[in-house]
């Protein structure tokens, strides 16, 4: 187990994907860019909120943050 995981041993980060499915991952601190990359999502095509507040994609998520990824629909 690495140091980060020990810092927040009981925390689970909740990631709400654009299709409304939910992924729960260990709460180790991670840049949203890394999280999006792991999910295969291009940061230019989404906006991301952390605990309900919009954040830039280089923000860090950790602990029991709730991350919501919103796809920007074309057109309008």
């Amino acid at each position: 187990m690495n140091g980060h995981a020990q810092l927040f041993p009981t925390h689970t980060m909740k990631i709400i994907l654009p299709d409304a499915t939910i992924q729960e991952v260990p709460g180790d601190p991670a840049s949203l860019l890394v999280i999006l990359d792991r999910l295969g999502i291009n940061p230019a095509e989404v906006i991301v909120s952390r605990n309900g507040k919009l954040v830039p994609e280089d923000a860090v998520a950790r602990g029991d943050d709730e991350i919501r990824i919103i796809r920007i629909a074309h057109g309008g």
Binding site: A59, D64, D65
Partner: peptide
């Protein structure tokens, strides 16, 4: 710093004021 709190010390701030940024 508790988990779930806002940006940690040293994290990026708005380039024009001290507020938390929403976009890069």
């Amino acid at each position: 710093m508790k988990p779930g709190e806002d940006a940690p010390a040293g994290a990026e701030r708005c380039s024009l004021c001290g507020e938390l940024p929403v976009i890069r």
